[in-house]
Amino acid sequence: MALRLPRIGTSQIVALGLILVANWIVSPQFFDIRVQDGRLFGSLIDVFNRGAPVALLSIGMVLVIAMRGIDLSVGAVMAICGAIAASLADTHSLPVVLAAALGAGLLCGLWNGLLVAVLGIQPIVATLILMVAGRGIAQLITEGRIVTFTSPDLAFLGGGSVLGLPTPVVLTLGMMALTLALVRGTALGLMIEATGGNPRASALAGIGTRFITVGVYVWSGLCAALAGIVASADILGADANNAGLWLELDAILAVVIGGTSLFGGRFSIILAVVGAFIIQAMNTGILLSGFPPETNLVVKAVVVLTVLLAQSPRLGGHFAGIGVLFKRSKSGGKRS
């Protein structure tokens, strides 16, 4: 087991900065921001607005991964909750719509958590069940078509703004703050890290590992539900076939870019969210660049590989500049 010293996430933040600068090079108006209908408008805002669903997913995913788990079902849960929200939006009030969609996400998370913690099924298998079945459930809800709605209340969650910031960005920051308060304001974070680092030792130290396991999957379900609501609100409809499709992989990638090991233990919520925005900054950059779409995936792979290599402690030593960053982080930085 590799021992990792606490980091302050310099490499992730540098990576995000570099990609934003690269975007500015391929598209000189990248940092232009103006106000359009009381809402900030520009490519930089797009990065955060479009990155919001994956950022939301990564907030739940980082906790699951810190517990040595993985949640493959988040994309399908997005589809389910988005479908529920869109189906109810024109006939029910917003609180009812949100309660139904978030409740469904909670139930999905509970299902995953019980399979993992109580029945002892491997997380990758347990959540694969809902990943496959969940999309089918979403299709049943929408009857295979794109369910559209006109409710301005729900639409606000996708296209509205608060103090100029797009609502999805505000929701992401809110969810991040709430999660941080929940895990770092209490001892849950320590318990999650201990359990992920050594589950047997943690159980012997009296930590209720089973309860916490169920808890992180429920939270992941809630985050996915919120992401699904945002995605539906954004396109004023629920597309069960495509909503959240493959986003579980982006969320896992965001967590890994954020420096959390897939073997569990130390985690950082803020850096996972930064990871999500790194991925989106890349996507937006590719769209702005005018490269032919056939190259999208290759460009993305090369950038991700570079970010991950820069993070690797073994390779880090070979890059003088990055080596300095690592030394600095050794002097006891703070975690998020």
Binding site: L3, E193, G197, N198, R200, A201, L204, G265
Partner: peptide
């Protein structure tokens, strides 16, 4: 190692 310490904490 396996039941006592949490090495990375």
């Amino acid at each position: 190692k396996t039941e006592g310490i949490v090495a990375e904490l």
